[in-house]
Amino acid sequence: MSELTHLDAKGAARMVDVTDKSVTEREARAEGVIHMAPETLAMIVDGEHPKGDVLAVARVAAIMAAKKTHDLIPLCHALNLTSVKVELVPDDTLPGVRIEARCKLAGQTGVEMEALTAVSVAALTLYDMCKAVDRGMQIGDIRLLEKKGGRSGHWKVDSGA
């Protein structure tokens, strides 16, 4: 395991200095799911949810969250994201919604936390909008799928994982 970069020599938390790092294209993808009752999923898919298009609201919330990650996670850098894409796919086999976020930029630090934050907030928004009809929903399986760029290069989760 590599050295923890968010701690100084005395063990105090610090923001990593990226001043001397090269600007490179960076990209990260993350995923997660929210499980719900089949009736709740049907209500979303059929457009019959009393609060309207919950998938559209969750998508906008995810994009906003990616852009504000540095406000939520103390040692994250404020980044100028050039792209945030969020897919919300209803899945009867869960039943629930599969969420994937992809964040990109040209910068000096990665966008993994932005992609993970986008997925998390999309799931939380779906929960918030649907809790009146289904309090038993469960959020899970949030993970990084892939990251590209920077000194560490390209990493992708094992397909069997």
Rank of each mutant, 00 (worst) to 15 (best):
E3V: 13
L4Q: 01
L4Y: 11
D8I: 03
A13W: 01
R14Q: 14
R14H: 14
T19V: 00
S22W: 00
S22K: 15
V23M: 05
E25H: 13
R26P: 00
A30K: 04
A30E: 12
E31L: 08
E31F: 06
A37F: 01
L41F: 11
A42V: 04
A42D: 11
D46E: 14
D46S: 10
H49Y: 05
H49M: 13
P50F: 11
G52S: 07
L55S: 00
L55F: 01
A56K: 12
R59Y: 06
A61Y: 02
A65S: 15
A65G: 06
K68G: 01
K68D: 13
T69K: 08
H70L: 13
L72K: 06
L72I: 15
I73A: 10
L75E: 07
A78T: 07
A78Q: 15
A78E: 13
L79P: 03
L79N: 02
L81A: 08
L81F: 03
T82Q: 15
T82E: 12
K85Q: 14
V86L: 00
D91A: 12
D91T: 12
V97N: 01
V97M: 03
K104L: 14
L105Q: 05
L105Y: 10
L105N: 03
G110H: 14
V111H: 05
E112Q: 15
E112G: 13
M113C: 04
E114H: 07
E114A: 12
T117D: 06
A118H: 01
V121G: 07
A122P: 14
A122S: 08
A123R: 03
A123H: 10
L124N: 00
T125P: 11
M129G: 02
M129W: 13
C130M: 07
K131M: 10
V133A: 13
R135S: 15
R135M: 12
M137E: 07
G140R: 15
D141I: 00
L144T: 05
K148L: 14
K148M: 05
G150K: 09
S152F: 01
G153F: 11
G153V: 15
W155N: 04
V157N: 04
